[in-house]
């Protein structure tokens, strides 16, 4: 057709105009909303006090090295607890997914464990383990002397329960025909689990697992109540000594530096999972 190129050009021009208008609107509305918000805060009667106590550059500069050192403890704790949780939670999920009658007591324990740990606030578990276990007087000295161990155990217990449920949803999402196929080629139930069902389940739950990682990375600050000198605790001490809250800002920034990149990884993984699900089988 002769008119086709013209019409296509006109259509593309219209589309470009539309897109340009969209970005202009977005820019203007961002400036108005964010600018208005900033104006509101800055013009508030208490702003000068807030600026002095929360955004003091001198205090930030002086406290940052100590907070950073404390944050390093958070990172180490996070990494260790995370590794423990990934393994333990898969164990709990597998136990809950089995139907063998002999495993009934273990299955019951796993169910009670997840129900209790998921139902109690993390901070309570940290308290109970952190102060209750030493009080029993049966724990070895090394465990009781450094509160970081008990705090880590409390976090690991809570997150094992969360992550076990994530794994279990993944295991349930693998279609029964995969198990049937695995058995039909001659694998045992255990082999079918290990080589066919678990690998598919784990792949599917990577995005929700990363979400729980982000929560854990923040919740490590809860061990502060037991006394270890991690970022939040260091900031607290520093703030208490010179009545300036800027160290908290330093700690918040450090957490963000880890959690924001993690959040972007989650987004990318989720987008990838969506693409995979939408992937049409080539025929």
């Amino acid at each position: 057709m002769d008119i086709a190129p013209d019409r296509r050009a006109a259509r593309e021009a219209a589309r470009r105009r539309h897109a340009r208008r969209g970005s202009v609107v977005a820019a203007v509305s961002s400036v108005v909303v964010l600018g208005g918000l900033a104006m509101l805060i800055v013009s508030s009667p208490g702003w000068e006090d807030v600026q002095r106590t929360f955004f003091s550059w001198e205090v930030f500069r002086d406290s940052f090295p100590d907070v950073l050192a404390g944050f390093w403890l958070d990172v180490k704790l996070f990494l260790v607890v995370e590794a423990v949780v990934l393994v333990l939670a898969l164990g709990v999920a597998l136990v809950r997914s089995t139907r063998a009658p002999a495993l009934f007591p273990v299955r019951l324990m796993a169910t009670v464990f997840t129900d209790v740990m998921r139902g109690v606030p993390v901070i309570l578990v940290v308290y109970l383990i952190g102060f209750g276990v030493p009080a029993l007087g049966i724990a070895p000295d090394w465990l009781v002397q450094d509160p970081i161990y008990l705090g880590g155990i409390a976090l690991a217990l809570c997150y094992t329960a969360y992550v076990a449920e994530v794994y279990r949803a993944g295991l349930d999402s693998v279609h029964p025909s995969q198990r049937a196929a695995a058995l039909a080629v001659g694998l045992s139930e255990t082999q079918a689990m290990r080589h066919v069902i678990v690998p598919q389940a784990v792949r599917r739950v990577v995005p929700p697992l990363l979400n729980d990682f982000i929560s854990l990375q923040k919740d490590v600050a809860l061990v502060a109540i037991l006394g270890p000198q991690e970022a939040f605790r260091v900031a607290q001490i520093s703030a208490a000594s010179d009545f300036n809250f800027t160290p908290f800002l330093a700690a918040a920034m450090l957490y963000l530096m880890v959690t924001v990149p993690l959040a972007r990884i989650v987004d990318r993984q989720q987008a990838k999972a969506r693409r995979r699900q939408g992937h049409v089988v080539a025929t």
Partner: peptide
């Protein structure tokens, strides 16, 4: 199987 059931 009818639906192949390959391991994806």
């Amino acid at each position: 199987f009818q639906a192949f059931n390959l391991f994806p």
